[in-house]
Design a protein around this nucleic acid. Structure first.
Lengths: 337, 337
DNA sequence: CAAAGATCGTGAATCGTTTCAAGCTAGGCT
DNA sequence: AGCCTAGCTTGAAACGATTCACGATCTTTG
């Protein structure tokens, strides 16, 4: 049995296809009796609207693409939920892709989304250059950059990670003079910002160059945290305050320290970053910098929706104000520092 | 500027639309010179194929829907990656949805996927009844059930959780006589299976009814693990071996025990389930039951692809053998037990 | 009672692609 | 020269929805 089309419904209900379409999209234009009859037939025949045809005809879709860096970090979960909630509120659907941190895969994701004719893209750029962005914009896609400084003429929402780094280190310098910063590859913007903020705060508090060590790890996983603990304990004199660029790193580090008999926070204090769920329930509940993740996702989606709607409403060159939102992180004090 | 269509390309390259389509889909039918000319124009004009039109014409899509229960558990990450890898290998794309454990949201996801005319769905059912499954099958969708026992006439891949539970408890009974099982709501099948396997293994090892306590927690999070630790310590006599239905629970439990001064594994041994990344790097590296997650996702995708292809290749009622794959878990011994 | 609304329905045109029967050309063979 | 074949290319017919100008009825009203 071939799939049921609007035509079959029309025939069976004894009306024209236009009327069925109206029942679906502008029910108030249809007389109640007809409306109910058509609805009944739809149920009876199990008609499901063909979104491809609909989209083809309408030219645009109520779908937004989201390109995330990875699903490995629980950080992205809340973000995604926030974004999805906002979209559903505005009647949009989401198409999820992950770039896995690879520029090639990111390109593939964007190609896919373009072919699907999504009306906008929310993205944490990996290898995205200004040129490609412009290209997408020219094709009428609204772009929202997530957790990166705005490009030219593009909306963005991000967290002020410089402030976050400062928050963490300010807390440490209240009691410590010898500090270490454990961080990941200084490639991505949020990571370098956290580092910059941390260093600035240390300077400001009068921590000398010699008393501030930065340990750069390969990645931001618990395993790297464990490795960082080993390197940390080789330092002489031993730092007493440590700032980790994310919670996974911090958890791995704290666990490794405890295992080798170093007491946290008594001998070494540790501050993390992200406030993932595990932070509150680790052996030594982690003091950390909380990001408004849900809100980050939510606002990103709102911006994308606004831009997409503007584009449609506009009979041509509606001016859409590109906005760069900056959200503030906050310090959550627990036991580890 | 209206989006570039295949027609524009044809005109500019001085060929017919049919030829452009051939360049895109069966390049070997087109003379080399023409092919290159068309390709050049495609690049020049920035043509992007409209997937809606393509799908509409073809009637089917090379897209599979995946409905996951949540993204909160790192467990799903590997699964998703495995599935995506398999799909890409076979030239399929994935559409991700999450049901968040709600039957209503699950329904919405399925409606969405049906409207998108995906050719199959991989799903971890929440409120999915046999009737809806049959309905989907009748509409020509291939269904693969993930991590649940097969419904009638549907493919499935799952892990043998009964065996997993046994594995865990067999390990514990080698050294312990008083056991506790910490588990979540006994609603979902994998959880009840683990429990059943654990109980069976305990019985078989001769653990008496009185020496086996089951603590049912609200959910499978570290916070619940912490709560479970409190309840555990109220037991008298104290169990010395504990099996947790997942790693997050186990980690929360171990951390809480350590914080109250109970030594793990010396005083209480703990076995988890899942082998998530954190298991290996927690304070006391966790002994746990590993699930072949990547493989689980991979095989699910393979089954879905096979069924989707069969449906197409078949000029009618090609017989597709519905298969129920069962993968085996394995025990990873670390320090916690 | 005729004209003017108001209220519902109709049906053809359209979106951008794929598909396929048929046409064209050039070259080889007899 | 005539016929075949192989290799390319063409152009029109779908696919399933939405949209919109226009009819067809029925009510109201002066």
């Amino acid at each position: 049995m071939p799939p049921v089309s609007i035509r079959d419904v029309a025939m069976r209900a004894g009306v024209s296809v236009g009327t069925v379409s109206n029942v679906l999209n502008r029910p108030n234009l249809v007389a109640e009796a007809t409306r109910e009859r058509v609805r009944a037939v739809i149920g009876e025949l199990g008609f499901v609207r063909n979104e491809s045809a609909r989209q083809l005809r309408q030219g645009r879709s109520r779908t937004l693409g989201v390109v995330l860096e990875s699903l490995g970090n629980p950080y992205f979960t809340d973000l995604a939920q926030g974004a999805e909630a906002a979209m559903n509120t505005d009647g949009f659907d989401a198409l999820w892709c992950t770039s896995d941190g690879s520029a090639a895969k990111e390109r593939r994701c964007l190609d896919f989304l373009e072919e699907q004719r999504v009306s906008g893209v929310i993205i944490t750029p990996v290898g995205l250059d200004a040129e490609r962005i412009a290209e997408l914009r020219d094709r009428g896609l609204s772009i929202v950059v997530l957790d990166r400084r705005a490009y030219d003429g593009v909306c963005s929402t991000r967290v002020d990670h410089v402030a976050g780094g400062e928050l963490a280190v300010d807390h440490l310098t209240a009691r410590h003079r010898r500090l270490a910063i454990v961080t990941g590859p200084l490639r991505s913007e949020p990571i370098t910002d956290r580092h910059a903020g941390a260093v600035a705060a240390a300077r400001r508090a009068g921590v000398s160059e010699d008393d501030l060590t930065t340990l750069v790890q390969r990645d931001l996983t618990p395993a790297s945290g464990k490795e960082a603990a080993r390197r940390l304990l080789e330092l002489d004199p031993l730092p007493t305050g440590v700032f980790c660029a994310n919670d996974l790193l911090a958890i791995g580090l704290v666990n490794a320290l405890l295992r080798t008999g170093v007491k946290v926070p008594e001998e070494i204090s540790v501050v993390g970053y992200d406030d993932i769920e595990l932070a509150g329930t680790s052996v030594v509940p982690l003091t950390t910098v909380r990001q408004p993740r849900h809100e980050l996702g939510w606002t990103a989606a709102e911006l994308a929706v606004a831009e997409a709607d503007a584009e449609v409403g506009a009979a041509g060159a509606e001016e859409h104000e590109h906005r760069g939102l900056v959200l503030s992180p906050s310090l959550v004090v627990r036991d580890s520092a």
